[in-house]
């Protein structure tokens, strides 16, 4: 039992080390690439633009539900005028960055992992090596930098539509004063709150992109089964590990932000 735990711990630490090394290579490889803007634009389209509809839909419904739930809680304390503040802070600080990251992982992260995994199996990564093209720079770096740009932007979209969703239920449906709703948000939300939320989005973007790319890139080493089932295994793992990492880092960053 103890030896099993030890073996797993050693494997985990060694995998984290490999992931850190891989991330380091990906973060510095972009300047060595040619046609950087073209690659970056394509990656921002894949990670950012394609995820806009899902982000807006989830953001709107999250805001609607949050407005509804918080209204009934606040009514118990006769504080329904605080609805705007409660919705905005919940979304900007926690729900926005976390839900957006999970949505992007579900859509773009899984696609990234599967695409690189298939490229590994089809010997395309080896082909890049033989052409003297750095595969990490060619396949991963543009995605990493695109995620750094796209995650905070999509989180901002989520925050805005979520707050509007809270307005729809709180003000339009349940009759909270619109002036109170917007005024409370204006008074309660500081620039620091927005920065804290976007900082989380940035960290989630880096961590999840690297996990998904890493799982795909080493699919031949990380999966128990070769071929398509191996890719499906590493893609599933990429999504699960990314989701866990989002919640872990959310806790860690929140702790630091609260302490400072």
């Amino acid at each position: 039992m103890i030896s099993k735990v030890g073996r797993h711990s050693i494997r985990l630490v060694s995998e984290l080390g490999e992931l850190a090394g891989f991330s380091g290579k990906a973060s510095v490889a972009l300047p060595g690439q040619r046609h950087i803007m073209e690659k970056l634009t394509r990656s921002i389209f894949e990670i950012g633009v394609r995820c806009v509809p899902i982000t807006l839909i989830v953001g709107l419904f999250t805001g609607l539900v949050l407005g509804l739930q918080l209204y009934y809680v606040l009514t118990k304390f006769s504080s329904e005028s605080l609805l705007g503040q409660a919705v905005a802070l919940s979304i900007i600080l926690e729900i926005g960055p976390v839900f957006t990251a999970i949505m992007i992982v579900g859509q773009a992260g899984s696609a990234l992992s599967a695409e690189i995994g298939i490229q590994r199996n089809a010997e395309q990564i080896d082909a890049l090596h033989t052409m003297q093209i750095n595969p990490i720079g060619f396949l991963v770096s543009p995605r990493l930098w695109a995620a750094i740009i796209a995650f905070p932007i999509l989180t901002t979209f989520f925050d805005l539509i979520g707050i509007y969703g809270g307005y729809l239920t709180g003000v339009e449906l349940l009759g909270v004063d619109p002036g109170a709703y917007w005024n409370r948000i204006y008074e309660a939300v500081s620039v620091q709150n927005i920065v804290n939320g976007l900082l989380k989005a940035l960290v989630f973007g880096i961590v999840t992109t690297m996990i998904c790319a890493f799982q795909g890139y080493y699919t031949h080493l990380k999966s128990d089964i070769p071929g398509a089932r191996g890719v499906s295994q590493t893609t599933t793992r990429a999504v699960v590990y990314s989701s866990i990492a989002i919640l872990m880092f959310d806790y860690l960053i929140t702790s630091f932000q609260m302490a400072s």
Partner: peptide, 23 residues
């Protein structure tokens, strides 16, 4: 390579040009 290792999201022309475009 055995399976050719062509990039399936690139056209024939783009595949052939790849080594020159990138290096």
């Amino acid at each position: 390579f055995q399976q050719n290792a062509l990039f399936d999201s690139m056209t024939v022309e783009e595949n052939v040009a790849l080594p020159l475009r990138e290096k």
